[in-house]
Simulated assay, not measured.
Amino acid sequence: MNNQCLFCGIVAGSVPHVKVAEDETTYAFMDINPGSNGHLLVIPKRHSKDLFEISPEDLAAVTLAAQRIAKSAVEVFEADGINLLNCCGADAWQTVFHFHLHVIPRYIDKTKDRLVLPWQPGTLGDPDLIETLGSKLATSLDRQLSTTMES
């Protein structure tokens, strides 16, 4: 637990919230700034700042809990779809620095859904840039894998 962390305070019960689910490792609660009706967050109980800091075990537990909750949310809220969203770093819109997955029900009925896309899917990118960036990332991942195997 981090005494300065809002989400750690929620897990500890010292911050008011609407709890949705809890297990040994994870905690889920409704988002107080929802992008759609039923928007909630799933977090690890153990504090980790972001995607880069969370343990593989906690990440797996949060993801599996989010999947279970998302299935139920679609049914209960009669949603038309679901977004799972993680923001890692202030420039990627992270505002609370405790790893969390947003589970955001999506609706055709826009009175229930206030989210809009920040980019236009279906707009093709520069193929040369895509190739260059993909190659750089693949090379880096190959290096990581070979370093791991040598250890």
Rank of each mutant, 00 (worst) to 15 (best):
N37K: 09
P56K: 02
D109M: 06
E57W: 08
A92F: 12
D23I: 05
C88Q: 08
I54D: 05
T123Q: 13
D31S: 06
E75L: 12
E150M: 15
A61D: 08
Q120S: 15
A61H: 00
A138Q: 11
T132V: 15
K110T: 15
V42G: 10
E22A: 00
V116Y: 11
D50L: 09
C8K: 06
I108Q: 12
G9N: 07
R68Q: 12
L133W: 07
S151A: 14
L101R: 00
H98S: 02
L51D: 06
A61F: 05
M149T: 12
G122I: 00
F7P: 03
N37H: 14
K136W: 04
Q67I: 12
F97V: 10
I104E: 08
C88A: 07
D109V: 02
V11E: 06
L117C: 14
E22L: 03
W119Q: 07
A12H: 08
I43H: 07
K19R: 13
P44V: 04
E57Q: 13
V42D: 00
K19W: 01
T147H: 13
F7L: 00
R106W: 04
A66K: 02
A92G: 09
V18S: 07
G38K: 03
L84S: 00
L117R: 11
A73P: 07
H102T: 03
H17T: 00
F99C: 01
S14D: 08
